[in-house]
Protein backbone atom coordinates (compact mmCIF):
# COMPACT_ATOMS: atom_id res chain seq x y z
CA UNK A 1 0.00 0.00 0.00
CA UNK A 2 2.69 2.46 1.05
CA UNK A 3 4.81 1.27 -1.81
CA UNK A 4 1.99 1.94 -4.26
CA UNK A 5 1.43 5.35 -2.78
CA UNK A 6 5.10 6.16 -3.19
CA UNK A 7 5.10 5.02 -6.76
CA UNK A 8 2.04 7.12 -7.41
CA UNK A 9 3.73 10.16 -5.94
CA UNK A 10 6.87 9.64 -7.91
CA UNK A 11 4.83 9.41 -11.08
CA UNK A 12 3.32 12.81 -10.35
CA UNK A 13 6.79 14.10 -9.54
CA UNK A 14 8.10 12.74 -12.77
CA UNK A 15 5.30 14.42 -14.70
CA UNK A 16 6.16 17.74 -13.09
CA UNK A 17 9.88 17.34 -13.60
CA UNK A 18 9.24 16.60 -17.22
CA UNK A 19 6.90 19.54 -17.68
CA UNK A 20 9.33 21.88 -15.97
CA UNK A 21 12.37 20.57 -17.80
CA UNK A 22 10.85 21.01 -21.21
CA UNK A 23 8.55 23.91 -20.40
CA UNK A 24 10.86 26.49 -18.83
CA UNK A 25 13.42 26.76 -21.64
CA UNK A 26 10.71 26.25 -24.26
CA UNK A 27 8.52 29.05 -22.93
CA UNK A 28 11.56 31.31 -22.54
CA UNK A 29 12.48 30.82 -26.19
CA UNK A 30 8.89 31.29 -27.36
CA UNK A 31 8.51 34.57 -25.47
CA UNK A 32 11.94 36.04 -26.14
CA UNK A 33 12.82 34.54 -29.49
CA UNK A 34 9.70 33.58 -31.46
CA UNK A 35 7.19 36.18 -30.28
CA UNK A 36 9.52 39.12 -31.13
CA UNK A 37 9.44 38.13 -34.80
CA UNK A 38 5.67 38.58 -34.86
CA UNK A 39 6.14 42.05 -33.42
CA UNK A 40 8.78 42.79 -36.07
CA UNK A 41 6.23 41.72 -38.68
CA UNK A 42 3.61 44.00 -37.15
CA UNK A 43 5.90 47.01 -37.02
CA UNK A 44 7.23 46.43 -40.53
CA UNK A 45 3.64 47.04 -41.69
CA UNK A 46 3.25 50.32 -39.83
CA UNK A 47 4.23 53.85 -40.74
CA UNK A 48 7.08 55.81 -39.18
CA UNK A 49 5.81 58.70 -37.05
CA UNK A 50 7.48 61.30 -34.89
CA UNK A 51 6.59 60.02 -31.48
CA UNK A 52 7.81 57.64 -28.83
CA UNK A 53 7.92 54.82 -29.98
CA UNK A 54 8.29 56.00 -33.60
CA UNK A 55 5.71 53.88 -35.41
CA UNK A 56 1.97 54.09 -36.03
CA UNK A 57 -0.65 51.71 -34.68
CA UNK A 58 -2.04 49.17 -37.13
CA UNK A 59 -5.54 49.27 -35.74
CA UNK A 60 -7.64 52.25 -34.89
CA UNK A 61 -11.08 52.22 -33.35
CA UNK A 62 -13.29 55.26 -33.76
CA UNK A 63 -16.97 55.87 -34.53
CA UNK A 64 -17.55 52.18 -33.92
CA UNK A 65 -15.29 51.37 -36.86
CA UNK A 66 -12.34 49.08 -36.39
CA UNK A 67 -9.81 50.01 -39.01
CA UNK A 68 -6.76 47.98 -39.82
CA UNK A 69 -4.16 49.81 -41.85
CA UNK A 70 -1.33 47.78 -43.34
CA UNK A 71 1.45 49.79 -44.85
CA UNK A 72 3.29 47.79 -47.51
CA UNK A 73 5.48 50.64 -48.68
CA UNK A 74 8.47 49.45 -46.64
CA UNK A 75 8.53 46.15 -48.49
CA UNK A 76 7.99 47.87 -51.82
CA UNK A 77 10.90 50.16 -51.05
CA UNK A 78 13.15 47.24 -50.11
CA UNK A 79 12.22 45.36 -53.28
CA UNK A 80 12.43 48.32 -55.66
CA UNK A 81 15.03 50.75 -54.38
CA UNK A 82 18.46 50.03 -55.77
CA UNK A 83 20.24 50.84 -52.52
CA UNK A 84 18.52 47.98 -50.70
CA UNK A 85 18.72 45.52 -53.58
CA UNK A 86 22.42 46.24 -53.99
CA UNK A 87 23.05 45.80 -50.29
CA UNK A 88 21.13 42.50 -50.29
CA UNK A 89 22.97 41.14 -53.32
CA UNK A 90 26.31 42.32 -52.00
CA UNK A 91 25.66 40.65 -48.62
CA UNK A 92 24.83 37.35 -50.29
CA UNK A 93 27.90 37.61 -52.51
CA UNK A 94 30.25 38.48 -49.64
CA UNK A 95 28.82 35.67 -47.50
CA UNK A 96 29.11 33.14 -50.33
CA UNK A 97 32.69 34.04 -51.29
CA UNK A 98 33.75 34.13 -47.61
CA UNK A 99 32.20 30.71 -47.08
CA UNK A 100 34.15 29.28 -50.01
CA UNK A 101 37.38 30.88 -48.76
CA UNK A 102 36.77 29.47 -45.28
CA UNK A 103 36.22 26.05 -46.83
CA UNK A 104 39.38 26.29 -48.89
CA UNK A 105 41.46 27.20 -45.86
CA UNK A 106 39.50 25.24 -43.25
CA UNK A 107 39.35 21.87 -45.00
CA UNK A 108 43.13 21.27 -45.04
CA UNK A 109 43.27 22.42 -41.41
CA UNK A 110 40.47 20.11 -40.27
CA UNK A 111 41.93 17.25 -42.31
CA UNK A 112 45.37 17.73 -40.78
CA UNK A 113 43.98 17.91 -37.23
CA UNK A 114 42.00 14.73 -37.82
CA UNK A 115 44.97 12.80 -39.16
CA UNK A 116 47.99 13.89 -37.04
CA UNK A 117 49.19 12.00 -33.96
CA UNK A 118 47.04 12.18 -30.84
CA UNK A 119 49.60 14.37 -29.05
CA UNK A 120 49.47 17.09 -31.69
CA UNK A 121 45.76 16.76 -32.27
CA UNK A 122 44.87 18.18 -28.84
CA UNK A 123 47.10 21.22 -29.26
CA UNK A 124 45.96 21.98 -32.81
CA UNK A 125 42.31 21.57 -31.83
CA UNK A 126 42.73 23.76 -28.76
CA UNK A 127 44.25 26.45 -30.97
CA UNK A 128 41.12 26.41 -33.14
CA UNK A 129 38.80 26.64 -30.13
CA UNK A 130 40.74 29.38 -28.31
CA UNK A 131 39.64 32.24 -30.62
CA UNK A 132 36.02 31.41 -29.68
CA UNK A 133 36.84 32.62 -26.20
CA UNK A 134 38.48 35.88 -27.19
CA UNK A 135 36.48 38.97 -27.99
CA UNK A 136 35.19 39.07 -31.54
CA UNK A 137 35.09 42.85 -31.52
CA UNK A 138 38.72 43.07 -30.46
CA UNK A 139 39.87 40.56 -33.07
CA UNK A 140 38.17 42.57 -35.81
CA UNK A 141 39.63 45.76 -34.37
CA UNK A 142 43.14 44.24 -34.53
CA UNK A 143 42.88 44.28 -38.33
CA UNK A 144 42.39 48.05 -38.45
CA UNK A 145 45.92 48.60 -37.19
CA UNK A 146 47.28 46.07 -39.66
CA UNK A 147 45.45 47.15 -42.81
CA UNK A 148 45.26 50.93 -42.58
CA UNK A 149 47.39 53.08 -44.95
CA UNK A 150 50.11 53.71 -42.36
CA UNK A 151 49.46 50.32 -40.78
CA UNK A 152 51.70 47.41 -39.93
CA UNK A 153 51.26 45.58 -43.26
CA UNK A 154 51.99 48.64 -45.39
CA UNK A 155 54.99 49.60 -43.24
CA UNK A 156 56.38 46.10 -43.62
CA UNK A 157 55.87 45.94 -47.39
CA UNK A 158 57.28 49.45 -47.86
CA UNK A 159 60.39 48.74 -45.81
CA UNK A 160 60.97 45.49 -47.72
CA UNK A 161 60.72 47.45 -50.95
CA UNK A 162 57.90 45.29 -52.33
CA UNK A 163 55.63 48.28 -52.88
CA UNK A 164 56.37 51.96 -53.45
CA UNK A 165 53.27 53.49 -51.99
CA UNK A 166 50.80 52.26 -49.37
CA UNK A 167 48.07 49.89 -50.52
CA UNK A 168 44.50 50.85 -49.76
CA UNK A 169 42.99 47.80 -48.12
CA UNK A 170 41.13 49.15 -45.11
CA UNK A 171 37.59 50.33 -45.92
CA UNK A 172 37.35 48.17 -49.04
CA UNK A 173 35.51 44.96 -49.84
CA UNK A 174 38.82 43.06 -49.54
CA UNK A 175 39.11 44.05 -45.88
CA UNK A 176 35.57 42.74 -45.30
CA UNK A 177 36.53 39.38 -46.81
CA UNK A 178 39.65 39.20 -44.63
CA UNK A 179 37.61 40.07 -41.54
CA UNK A 180 34.85 37.53 -42.19
CA UNK A 181 37.18 34.65 -43.08
CA UNK A 182 39.31 35.45 -40.04
CA UNK A 183 36.34 35.61 -37.64
CA UNK A 184 34.38 32.63 -38.95
CA UNK A 185 37.19 30.19 -39.81
CA UNK A 186 36.83 28.23 -36.53
CA UNK A 187 33.10 27.72 -37.27
CA UNK A 188 34.12 25.96 -40.48
CA UNK A 189 36.99 23.92 -39.04
CA UNK A 190 35.16 22.46 -36.01
CA UNK A 191 32.25 20.67 -37.75
CA UNK A 192 34.61 19.53 -40.51
CA UNK A 193 36.99 18.11 -37.93
CA UNK A 194 34.15 16.38 -36.04
CA UNK A 195 33.15 14.75 -39.31
CA UNK A 196 36.62 13.79 -40.56
CA UNK A 197 37.66 12.35 -37.19
CA UNK A 198 34.83 9.81 -37.47
CA UNK A 199 35.91 8.69 -40.94
CA UNK A 200 36.44 4.95 -41.11
CA UNK A 201 40.15 4.44 -41.85
CA UNK A 202 39.47 0.90 -43.12
CA UNK A 203 37.84 2.37 -46.21
CA UNK A 204 41.01 4.26 -47.10
CA UNK A 205 43.16 1.20 -46.45
CA UNK A 206 40.91 -0.91 -48.61
CA UNK A 207 41.17 1.65 -51.41
CA UNK A 208 44.95 1.70 -51.10
CA UNK A 209 45.05 -2.12 -51.14
CA UNK A 210 43.04 -2.07 -54.32
CA UNK A 211 45.62 0.23 -55.87
CA UNK A 212 43.99 3.66 -55.54
CA UNK A 213 46.41 6.55 -55.29
CA UNK A 214 45.98 8.88 -52.27
CA UNK A 215 44.52 11.67 -54.39
CA UNK A 216 41.97 9.28 -55.91
CA UNK A 217 40.90 7.83 -52.58
CA UNK A 218 40.60 11.35 -51.18
CA UNK A 219 38.38 12.46 -54.03
CA UNK A 220 36.32 9.27 -54.16
CA UNK A 221 36.03 8.43 -50.45
CA UNK A 222 37.03 11.18 -48.00
CA UNK A 223 35.45 14.11 -49.81
CA UNK A 224 32.00 12.53 -50.43
CA UNK A 225 31.84 11.19 -46.87
CA UNK A 226 32.71 14.58 -45.41
CA UNK A 227 29.85 16.30 -47.25
CA UNK A 228 27.68 16.62 -44.10
CA UNK A 229 30.59 18.37 -42.36
CA UNK A 230 31.10 20.66 -45.33
CA UNK A 231 27.43 21.63 -45.37
CA UNK A 232 27.25 22.17 -41.60
CA UNK A 233 30.39 24.31 -41.59
CA UNK A 234 29.25 26.30 -44.61
CA UNK A 235 25.89 27.11 -43.03
CA UNK A 236 27.54 28.17 -39.76
CA UNK A 237 29.62 30.66 -41.76
CA UNK A 238 27.13 31.72 -44.43
CA UNK A 239 24.02 32.43 -42.33
CA UNK A 240 25.54 34.81 -39.76
CA UNK A 241 27.83 36.38 -42.39
CA UNK A 242 24.84 37.60 -44.44
CA UNK A 243 23.62 39.77 -41.56
CA UNK A 244 27.06 40.72 -40.28
CA UNK A 245 27.32 44.26 -38.93
CA UNK A 246 30.58 44.77 -37.03
CA UNK A 247 32.95 43.66 -39.82
CA UNK A 248 31.51 45.75 -42.68
CA UNK A 249 31.14 48.69 -40.30
CA UNK A 250 34.72 48.68 -38.97
CA UNK A 251 36.62 47.30 -41.97
CA UNK A 252 34.34 48.00 -44.94
CA UNK A 253 33.87 51.16 -46.94
CA UNK A 254 31.35 52.76 -49.27
CA UNK A 255 31.75 49.98 -51.86
CA UNK A 256 30.92 47.24 -49.39
CA UNK A 257 27.45 48.07 -48.18
CA UNK A 258 25.88 45.09 -46.44
CA UNK A 259 22.31 44.64 -45.36
CA UNK A 260 23.10 44.26 -41.64
CA UNK A 261 24.85 47.61 -41.59
CA UNK A 262 22.06 49.19 -43.62
CA UNK A 263 19.51 47.96 -41.10
CA UNK A 264 21.58 49.40 -38.27
CA UNK A 265 21.74 52.78 -40.04
CA UNK A 266 18.00 52.84 -40.73
CA UNK A 267 17.36 52.08 -37.09
CA UNK A 268 19.92 54.19 -35.23
CA UNK A 269 20.63 57.09 -37.61
CA UNK A 270 17.37 57.50 -39.55
CA UNK A 271 15.16 56.29 -36.67
CA UNK A 272 13.00 54.49 -39.23
CA UNK A 273 11.90 51.51 -37.16
CA UNK A 274 9.31 50.18 -39.66
CA UNK A 275 11.82 50.13 -42.51
CA UNK A 276 14.47 48.48 -40.32
CA UNK A 277 11.87 45.84 -39.38
CA UNK A 278 11.02 45.20 -43.04
CA UNK A 279 14.73 44.77 -43.79
CA UNK A 280 15.14 42.39 -40.85
CA UNK A 281 12.27 40.22 -42.07
CA UNK A 282 13.65 40.23 -45.60
CA UNK A 283 17.00 38.92 -44.33
CA UNK A 284 15.18 36.38 -42.21
CA UNK A 285 13.14 35.03 -45.11
CA UNK A 286 16.28 34.69 -47.25
CA UNK A 287 18.03 32.79 -44.45
CA UNK A 288 15.17 30.44 -43.55
CA UNK A 289 15.89 28.11 -46.47
CA UNK A 290 19.57 27.44 -45.69
CA UNK A 291 18.70 27.19 -41.99
CA UNK A 292 16.00 24.55 -42.48
CA UNK A 293 18.35 22.63 -44.79
CA UNK A 294 21.03 22.65 -42.08
CA UNK A 295 18.55 21.50 -39.41
CA UNK A 296 17.24 18.65 -41.59
CA UNK A 297 20.73 17.41 -42.27
CA UNK A 298 21.68 17.64 -38.62
CA UNK A 299 18.56 15.74 -37.58
CA UNK A 300 19.22 12.97 -40.08
CA UNK A 301 22.76 12.71 -38.84
CA UNK A 302 21.68 12.52 -35.19
CA UNK A 303 19.05 9.89 -35.94
CA UNK A 304 21.61 7.75 -37.71
CA UNK A 305 24.07 8.09 -34.85
CA UNK A 306 21.66 7.08 -32.12
Amino acid sequence: MIRQLRQGFSKIYRGWGRRLGIGLPYIWLIIFFLLPFLIVLKISLSEPVLSQPPYSALTTFSDSMLQIKLNLSNYLLVSEDELYLDALMNSLKVALVSTLLCLLLGYPMAYTIATVQQRWRHILLMMIILPFWTSFLIRVYAWIGILKPQGILNNLLLSLGIIDEPLTILHTQLAVYIGIVYSYLPFMVLPLYANLAKLNQNLLEAAADLGARPVTSFLRITLPLSLPGIIAGSMLVFIPAVGEFVIPDLLGGPDSLMVGKLMWTEFFSNKDWPLASALALTILIILVVPFIAMQRLHQRYEDRDS
Binding site: F33, G243, F245, M263, A280
Partner: peptide
Protein backbone atom coordinates in the same frame (compact mmCIF):
# COMPACT_ATOMS: atom_id res chain seq x y z
CA UNK B 1 23.28 30.00 -32.85
CA UNK B 2 23.20 31.28 -36.42
CA UNK B 3 20.70 34.14 -36.33
CA UNK B 4 22.39 37.44 -37.27
CA UNK B 5 22.83 39.69 -34.23
CA UNK B 6 21.09 42.66 -35.82
CA UNK B 7 17.87 40.65 -36.16
CA UNK B 8 17.91 39.32 -32.58
CA UNK B 9 18.69 42.81 -31.30
CA UNK B 10 15.97 44.60 -33.24
CA UNK B 11 13.29 41.99 -32.55
CA UNK B 12 13.98 41.95 -28.80
CA UNK B 13 13.96 45.73 -28.60
CA UNK B 14 10.58 45.85 -30.33
CA UNK B 15 9.30 43.19 -27.91
Amino acid sequence: LVMPDVIIGLSLLLL
